Simulated assay, not measured.
Amino acid sequence: MSNGSFPPSPGRRSGTLAVVLTALVPVCLAGWLIWDSMGDPKSGGGTSSLPTADSTSIAPPASGGPSGGATGHPKDDSGRPLTGKVVVIDPGHNPHNRDHPSAIARSVDIGTAKKECDTTGTATNSGYSEASFTLDVSRRVRTLLQDRGAKVVFTQDGDRAYGPCVDERAEIGNKAHADAAVSVHADGAAAGQRGFHVILPASVRGGGADTSAITGPSHRLGTRLVTEFSEATGAKPANYMGDGTGLKVRDDLGGLNLSTVPKVFIECGNMRDSKDAAQLTDAAWRERAARGIAQGITDFLNR
Score class of each variant (00 low, 15 high):
T122L: 06
T112K: 06
A191E: 13
A209R: 00
N239M: 09
A18K: 15
V249R: 13
I199V: 15
T119D: 14
R250A: 09
T122Y: 10
S102L: 12
P91M: 04
A176F: 06
A170I: 07
G222P: 06
D299K: 14
D99K: 15
A209I: 02
I214K: 00
T56H: 13
A105G: 15
S14N: 11
N174G: 12
D273H: 07
V182D: 02
T124V: 10
R303N: 09
G39Y: 01
Q279K: 15
V166Y: 06
M271T: 02
W35T: 13
G68V: 05
G234D: 09
G216V: 14
T245Q: 08
G269Q: 01
T122A: 11
S5V: 13
C28F: 15
S2Q: 07
A191F: 05
P61L: 05
G149E: 04
A161H: 04
R13V: 14
A62V: 13
A294S: 10
D99W: 14
R205C: 10
V27W: 14
P95L: 06
H100M: 08
A181N: 06
C268Q: 11
V166G: 02
E130C: 11
D77C: 11
K151C: 00
A178D: 08
N174V: 10
A59D: 12
T16E: 07
T215S: 03
G242I: 09
M241P: 00
C117S: 15
P61Q: 07
R205P: 00
V249H: 07
G296V: 03
L135T: 06
G222S: 09
G65Q: 00
S218N: 03
F265I: 12
K151Y: 12
T281R: 09
K175V: 03
A232F: 12
A150Y: 03
E231W: 05
P262Q: 06
D40N: 15
L221R: 13
V25E: 07
G72V: 02
A178W: 04
A180D: 05
F6L: 08
N97A: 11
V20E: 01
R142F: 01
L225F: 13
I297N: 03
D109M: 08
A103F: 10
P60G: 00
M241S: 08
V261D: 01
V152S: 08
A176R: 03
I34Q: 10
